[in-house]
């Protein structure tokens, strides 16, 4: 390992995984604290990276602090490994670590993601790192950080609940699309990052460790494996995920994955494709797990 670190320094003049070891240690310490208090936002000394604030620096700092030479990394944005931002982040990691990367969800030890959780069920040996623009689920009802911290401390969540109440009264249903708030371990309400509602149930009692990093807002939080994560809902207005009933992926034919709606240039028609490109590829090659996390009943 030491040799590898020296080698990578020689190449670019930067430390292994860019961030200096002391900072990495601090980030890992804060991450451990986050794991110990599921859903609680731990402030951390967010470092500046050569990636713009708001472009995944929080997730990246967690990933960089966790990576060892034997890790296999996958980076996705909108479910896609080839999205330009995912490519950019992956390039930075590869340049400063020389570690192996993969497009394959199954092969990866660490997956950094923006806005999606892979369709295929992840295992206990894997870590999913989510990029977070707004760590504070209460921000929609309270702009002040000083106040939301007190609200969390006192479990004073009625304002957010009234927001949902008002939504139903005004619109006949809750209008929050992505970033759907969830109660973690019966204690903290948490912003699951802008994943679609489709992905929120995957957080509940999962085998995988989920880590959330907000670089600009300087917060880390976590959902350890086998933790209760319940999206906020009323007894008579249940949480529901996006409705793709009657639709299927135009490429692999999946009827049980989150779909992107696409306007076809040539035909002028709307088509649908799997948002998780690796899942779609694996289905085409017959590799994808037929069961697992992907739903058949939606």
């Amino acid at each position: 390992m030491i040799k590898q670190i020296v080698d990578s320094r020689k190449d670019k003049g930067y430390n292994f995984a860019f961030i200096d070891e002391q900072a990495k240690r601090e980030i890992r310490r804060k991450t451990l604290k986050a794991v110990a208090i599921p859903g609680y936002q731990v402030p951390f000394g967010s470092r500046e990276l050569p990636i713009a604030r708001g472009w995944g620096t929080g997730g990246l700092q967690i990933t960089l602090s966790l990576l060892g030479p034997d890790d296999v990394l996958k980076v996705i944005d909108q479910g896609c490994d080839g999205s330009v931002n995912a490519v950019n982040l992956r390039n930075l990691v590869v340049e400063t670590t020389k570690i192996a990367t993969t497009l394959d969800t199954e092969e990866a030890t660490i997956i950094q993601t923006r806005h999606r959780i892979p369709e295929e069920k992840m295992t206990g040996g894997q870590i999913l790192v989510l990029q977070v623009p707004y760590p504070e689920a209460l921000r929609i009802v309270e702009p002040s950080e000083a106040k939301t911290r007190v609200m969390h401390a006192e479990m004073d969540y009625s304002k957010l609940w009234v927001y949902l109440y008002e939504d139903i009264v005004r619109w006949g249903g809750i209008t929050i699309g992505a970033r759907y708030p969830a109660m973690v371990n019966k204690r903290y309400i948490m912003d699951p990052s802008p994943i679609p509602r489709w992905d929120v149930p995957k957080l509940h009692m999962a085998d995988t460790l989920y880590l959330f990093g907000a670089g600009r807002e300087k917060r880390i939080y976590a959902i350890p494996p086998h933790t209760e994560v319940i999206p906020l809902e009323f007894e008579d207005h249940k949480f529901r995920v996006e409705d793709f009933s009657g639709l299927s992926c135009g490429r692999c034919g999946s009827t049980s994955s989150f779909l992107d709606e696409i306007f076809d240039d040539s035909s002028g028609q709307k088509t649908y494709l799997c948002s998780d490109t690796n899942y779609c590829d694996r289905r085409l090659t017959g590799l994808a797990q037929r069961k697992g996390n992907a739903r058949n009943d939606r």
């Binding site: 909108q78 249903g173 994943i195 409705d243």
Partner: peptide, 14 residues
């Protein structure tokens, strides 16, 4: 400027 396809899809659904 980054893609927000997924979140927008979620909003469209709502």
């Amino acid at each position: 400027k980054l893609p927000h396809y997924v979140t927008f899809q979620s909003d469209l659904d709502r």
